[in-house]
Design a protein around this nucleic acid. Structure first.
Length: 854
RNA sequence: GCGGACGUGAUGGAAUGGUAGACAUAUCGGACUUAAAAUCCGAAGGCCUAGUGCCGUGUGGGUUCGAGUCCCACCGUCCGCACCA
C-alpha cells in the first residue's frame, strides 16, 4: 500500500500555520467573532484518547468557523490545582508544583502534534500566581458584595490520620489510607451564596436553547424548586418544632415527627441524655455523600417527647430522631406519613409505629401493607376527614388546596424552597488557591489587602522542603507562612490556611481566556467582545456542578463589574461528548483474581486473543471507559507515531455519534489510516490526470459533490461528525469510480479535501497544495452547495399499501400530489390489492412516500 | 436510595413520524500476483413454502394512514449525587 508519510506532512503544515499565525485571535470588527472552548484538561501527565476526542471536536468547529469567515478564539489552558499533585508528592516525594508544571510541559508536548487550531499565546494554568491572584481578587470582591460567608458544615473526618477526606478518599465508609471508619465532623468553612440565585439559575435555564435538554433537566432537578407547607407542631412539654413538607395533603396520615440528628433539639437532648448522644454518634459514622446517607440503614431513636397534631389537639405524635433526615434541607424536621411514603413506611414497620391509611378513599382501595400508596397522577383521590371539603383532587391540586386550607386557618404558610445548597469552597489542602483572609484576635476575619495579592503558596518552609508525607494540610503547620500581620490593625495574626475548591478555578477560566494577561480578573473591553463562549464542549459528568457553578460565577462577576451583563449565561451552546472506551483484556492469577493486560501486550492468536509474551489465552471483557487500573488504554502518542494525528482525529470522530461513547479498536484505527492513504492516492492521481471531459459523468459527479457539501456542512454544524464522515467516505467512493473528466474530478477533489480539512487538517493542507490551490486550506473559504444541484430530476417514491411497502414508482421531482396519486393508483401492485374497489384513503407525502389505505 | 440518559445485523452505527440497516469494520467470493501483502470488483439481517413472501430496531401495551423515532409500563446497561477532576 502506498502509505503517505503522516509524520512528515504533519510537522510541515503545523509549522506553516504557526508561521502564518492563522490561529492567533485578536479583536476585530471586520468579522463576526466565534469563541470555541473545550473543557480544559487536568495535567495528569499524559493526554488520553478522551482528550483527543474532546479537542478534535472543538477543533472541527473552530476550523469550520474560521473557513466561514469568523474571527475565532480557541484557547487552551490547564486546570492545575487538585489532589493528585499532593498524592504524588505524598507517594513519591517531590513537590506538587514541580510535578504539575512538569506534567503541563509533557502534555503540551503531546497535544501540539494533534495540530489543533489553538491560540497558544493565551495559555495559562490555574496554579499560576498570576491566575490565582486574580481569583483571590474575585473572592475579595465577592466578600464585599456579601456573596461569600462562613458557617459550619460537615466534612469526612479520618480519626486515625486526623485529617479531612474528600468523598473520593472514603471507600465503603473507611479512610483510604488508614482504613479507619470515617466520621462526620463539623468545621467552620467558607461558602458562596449560590442559593441566593436559585430562582434565577432555574428561570434562565429556559433560555438555554442550545444546551442539551437532559443537562437543563438535570440542573432543574438539582436546584429542586418545591412549594410546600411550613408550620409548627406544638410540643406537649412546651416549645415547638417547625417542619416543612411538600406533601401537606398527607398530614392526616402523620404518625411521627422525625428530626435530623443535627437538629438543635437533638443536640440539646444529647447534652443531658447519654443515649441520645450515643445515637447521634452512631449517626455520624460514615461518609457525607448523599448517596451514603440515603443508602444507610434507617435508624431511629424515640425521644419520648410528643407534639400535638395541628388539626386535632387531642392527637399526639411522638418525636423521633432519624438518620435519614437532612439538616440541610427544609427545617431539618418532618412529619412521617407511612401510608404515602415508602421510606416512612419502612421506618414505621421497623419501629412499630402506626400506619394510618383511612384519610383518603379510592374506588379499589386496599389497606397499606408493605408498599406505600402513591396516587397515580391521573387518578382522582378523595380525601376525607378534615380535608373532606377539598374533595376530589389530583395530586398537585390537593397539595395546593391543603396549603390554602392551612393558611386560611392561620397555622401554616405556603413556602417555596430549593434543594440547592450553598457551595462550600474551603479545602483543608495545600495545592489550591489560598483563601486571602487573615484571622486576627481583635479584628476577627480580615480580608487581605488587594495590593498584597497574590497570597502566594509557599514553595518551602524557610529553605527546608515541605513535608507532604504527613497527613493533613502542610499550610497549617508552616512555621512562617501562617503567621502574619493583621491587614487592619497590624497586630500578629494568622493566615487562613484553607485553600479553595478546584471548582472555583474552573468557574471563570473561560472569562480569563478573553484577556489572559490582564492586571484585573478580566478586561471589560475584551470580555465584551469575546464573550460568550459560542460553543462549549465537554463531558456529561460536568452536567451539574461545573456548569452550575460557572453560571453562578458569571452572575457574581457581573455584580462585581468583571463581566458585562450579556455574559451572565456564559455558554451560549453546550455539547456533551461521550467517552472513549476499549475492551479489557484479562487473565486470572492462581487465586482466580483478574489480571489486566495492555492492548499492546496482546495479539490475535489461535482461537482468539493471546498474550504476546506467553501465548496464554486472554479473556475479552466488553468495552469500558479507558482507565489505567484496567489497563484498557491506548496512548495517543503511540497512535500518532504509528499513523499520524489525522488518523487519530478521523477515527475518534468517525465511528460513533459524538454524544455517545466510542470504542477504540486497533482495526478501526488501521481502517481510518487506510482510508486517508486512499484519499491521498486518489487525489494525487487526479492532480496529475488530463482525462477529457465527459458531460454526463461530469454533471453526475458535480451533483454528488454539491450534495456532499450540503450534508457535510450540515453534519459539522450540528455535531453530526460521524454522519458527515460517512458522507465523505461515500463521496470518496463516487470520486474514485467516476468516469468524469479531469476538470470535474479536480473540482470534486478540491472540494473533498476542503470538506475533510476540519477533521484531517494536515492531509488536506498537503493535498490542497498538490492540487495547486493558493494559500492555506485552513483559511480558504468554505464551499457552498448550489441548491439547484441538490435535487435529481426524477425521484423514486415507495408505495405503501396499508403502511407496508409494496412497490415503487419513478416520478419527476416536481410532479404534483394529484398526479402522483394517479400514478400510484395505476401501479400493478396497487391495482391487484384494490381488486376493483376504491381506496379508503391515499396519503401522498411529496418527494417521500405514497400510502394507499384499502 | 434519588436524578438523568441509552438499548437497531457478527461489530461501530445511519434513518426532519415516511423504502430500517447508509457508511465503516470483521467475514466470504472474484480480479491482479509465482506467492503473499497492498489494491480493485462483488456478496451479505433472519426464516421458509423462494413469493417483489413472512418476520425483524431490549420486552409488553398504546397513539397514527404509517413508529427505530411519540406516549405508558417493565427489563438491562451507563453517568451524576454537592470535598475526584
Amino acid at each position: 500500500m502506498s502509505r503517505y508519510s503522516a509524520a512528515e506532512i504533519e510537522a510541515k503544515w503545523q509549522e506553516a500555520w504557526d508561521k502564518a499565525g492563522v490561529f492567533r485571535a485578536e479583536r476585530s470588527q471586520d468579522k463576526p467573532k466565534y469563541y470555541v472552548l473545550e473543557m480544559f484538561p487536568y495535567p495528569s501527565g499524559r493526554i488520553h484518547m478522551g482528550h483527543v476526542r474532546n479537542y478534535t471536536m472543538g477543533d472541527v468547529i473552530a476550523r469550520h468557523r474560521l473557513a466561514t469567515g469568523h474571527n475565532v478564539l480557541h484557547p487552551m489552558g490547564w486546570d492545575a490545582f487538585g489532589m493528585p499533585a499532593e498524592n504524588a508528592a505524598m507517594a513519591s516525594g517531590g513537590h506538587p508544583k514541580d510535578w504539575t508544571y512538569g506534567n503541563i510541559a509533557d502534555m503540551r508536548g503531546q497535544m501540539k502534534p494533534l495540530g489543533l487550531s489553538i491560540d497558544w499565546s493565551r495559555e495559562f494554568a490555574t496554579c499560576d500566581p498570576e491566575y490565582y491572584g486574580q481569583q483571590q481578587a474575585l473572592f475579595l470582591d465577592f466578600l464585599e458584595k456579601g456573596l461569600v460567608y462562613r458557617k459550619n458544615a460537615v466534612v469526612n473526618w479520618d480519626p486515625v490520620d486526623m485529617t479531612v477526606l474528600a468523598n473520593e478518599q472514603v471507600i465503603d465508609g473507611k479512610g483510604w489510607r488508614s482504613g479507619a471508619e470515617v466520621e462526620r465532623r463539623e468545621l467552620t468553612q467558607w461558602f458562596f451564596k449560590i442559593s441566593d440565585f436559585s430562582e434565577e439559575l432555574l428561570e434562565a435555564l429556559g433560555g438555554l436553547d442550545n444546551w442539551p435538554a437532559k443537562v437543563r433537566l438535570m440542573q432543574e432537578n438539582w436546584i429542586g424548586k418545591s412549594r410546600g407547607l411550613q408550620f409548627s407542631f406544638e410540643r406537649t412539654d412546651g416549645g415547638e418544632i417547625e417542619v416543612y413538607t411538600t406533601r401537606p395533603d398527607t398530614l392526616l396520615g402523620a404518625s411521627f415527627i422525625g428530626i435530623s440528628p443535627d437538629h438543635p433539639l437533638a443536640k440539646e437532648l444529647a447534652e443531658s441524655n447519654p443515649d441520645v448522644a450515643a445515637f447521634r454518634a452512631e449517626c455520624s459514622k460514615g461518609g457525607t455523600t448523599e448517596e451514603a446517607l440515603e443508602k444507610a440503614e434507617k435508624l431511629g431513636f424515640d425521644t419520648g417527647l410528643t407534639v400535638k397534631h395541628p388539626l386535632d389537639p387531642n392527637w399526639e405524635l411522638p418525636i423521633w430522631i432519624a438518620n435519614f433526615i437532612l439538616m440541610d434541607y427544609g427545617t431539618g424536621a418532618i412529619f412521617g406519613c407511612p401510608a404515602h411514603d415508602q421510606r416512612d413506611l419502612d421506618f414505621c414497620r421497623k419501629y412499630d409505629l402506626p400506619v394510618i391509611d383511612t384519610f383518603f378513599a379510592m374506588d379499589d382501595q386496599t389497606p397499606v401493607a408493605t408498599e406505600a400508596f402513591v396516587p397515580p397522577k391521573t387518578d382522582k383521590v378523595k380525601w376525607v376527614n378534615h380535608f373532606a371539603g377539598i374533595d376530589v383532587a389530583t395530586g398537585q391540586e390537593a397539595i395546593d388546596a391543603t396549603i390554602d386550607y392551612a393558611e386560611k386557618q392561620g397555622w401554616g404558610t405556603g413556602v417555596t424552597k430549593y434543594r440547592l445548597r450553598d457551595w462550600g469552597l474551603s479545602r483543608q489542602r495545600y495545592w489550591g488557591c489560598p483563601i486571602p483572609v487573615v484571622h486576627c484576635e481583635s479584628c476577627g476575619v480580615v480580608p487581605e489587602k488587594k495590593e498584597n495579592l497574590p497570597v502566594e503558596l509557599p514553595y518551602d518552609e524557610d529553605g527546608k522542603p515541605i513535608d507532604f508525607a504527613t497527613p493533613g494540610n502542610p499550610l497549617d503547620r508552616h512555621p512562617t507562612w501562617r503567621d502574619c500581620a493583621c491587614p487592619k490593625c497590624g497586630a500578629p495574626a494568622k493566615r487562613e490556611t484553607d485553600t479553595m475548591d478546584t471548582f472555583v478555578d474552573s468557574s471563570w477560566y473561560f472569562a480569563r481566556f478573553t484577556a489572559p494577561r490582564a492586571e484585573t480578573p478580566t478586561n471589560l473591553v475584551e470580555a465584551e467582545y469575546w464573550m460568550n463562549v459560542d460553543q462549549y464542549i465537554g463531558g456529561i459528568e460536568h452536567a451539574i456542578l461545573h456548569l452550575l457553578y460557572s453560571r453562578f460565577f458569571a452572575r457574581a462577576m457581573h455584580i462585581c463589574g468583571h463581566l458585562p451583563e450579556k455574559a451572565i449565561e456564559p455558554f451560549d451552546a453546550l455539547f456533551t461528548q461521550g467517552m472513549v472506551t476499549h475492551a479489557i483484556y484479562q487473565t486470572k492469577d492462581d487465586k482466580g483474581r483478574a489480571v489486566y493486560h495492555f492492548p499492546e501486550d496482546v495479539e490475535e492468536g489461535e482461537g482468539g486473543m493471546r498474550l504476546k509474551a506467553t501465548g496464554e489465552a486472554v479473556e475479552i471483557v466488553p468495552s469500558a471507559k479507558m482507565s489505567k487500573s484496567k489497563k484498557n488504554v491506548v496512548d495517543p502518542v503511540n497512535i500518532i507515531r504509528e499513523f499520524g494525528a489525522d488518523t487519530a482525529r478521523w477515527f475518534v470522530l468517525s465511528d460513533s455519534p459524538p454524544e455517545r461513547d466510542v470504542e477504540w479498536t486497533a482495526a478501526g484505527a488501521e481502517a481510518a489510516f487506510k482510508h486517508l492513504s486512499r484519499v491521498h492516492r486518489i487525489v494525487t492521481e487526479i492532480a496529475a490526470s488530463d482525462a477529457p471531459a465527459n458531460a454526463e459523468a461530469d454533471t453526475a459527479l458535480l451533483r454528488e459533490m454539491h450534495k456532499t457539501i450540503h450534508d457535510v456542512t450540515g453534519g459539522v454544524e450540528s455535531f453530526g461528525f460521524n454522519a458527515a464522515i460517512a458522507k465523505l467516505y461515500a463521496f470518496t467512493n463516487t470520486l474514485a469510480r467516476a468516469q468524469a473528466g479531469a476538470g470535474a474530478k479536480r473540482e470534486a477533489a478540491v472540494t473533498l479535501v476542503q470538506l475533510m480539512s476540519p477533521m484531517t487538517p494536515h492531509l488536506s493542507e498537503d493535498l490542497w497544495s498538490t492540487l495547486g490551490q493558493d494559500g492555506l486550506v485552513a483559511t480558504a473559504k468554505w464551499p457552498v452547495a448550489d441548491p439547484a444541484m441538490l435535487v435529481d430530476d426524477t425521484i423514486t417514491m415507495p408505495i405503501q399499501i396499508n403502511g407496508k411497502r409494496r412497490a415503487e414508482i419513478e416520478v419527476p421531482k416536481d410532479m404534483d400530489k394529484a398526479e402522483v396519486e394517479k400514478a400510484a393508483l395505476s401501479n400493478d401492485a396497487v391495482i391487484r390489492s384494490l381488486d376493483g374497489a376504491q381506496p379508503k384513503k391515499v396519503i401522498v407525502v411529496p418527494g417521500r412516500i405514497v400510502n394507499v389505505v384499502v
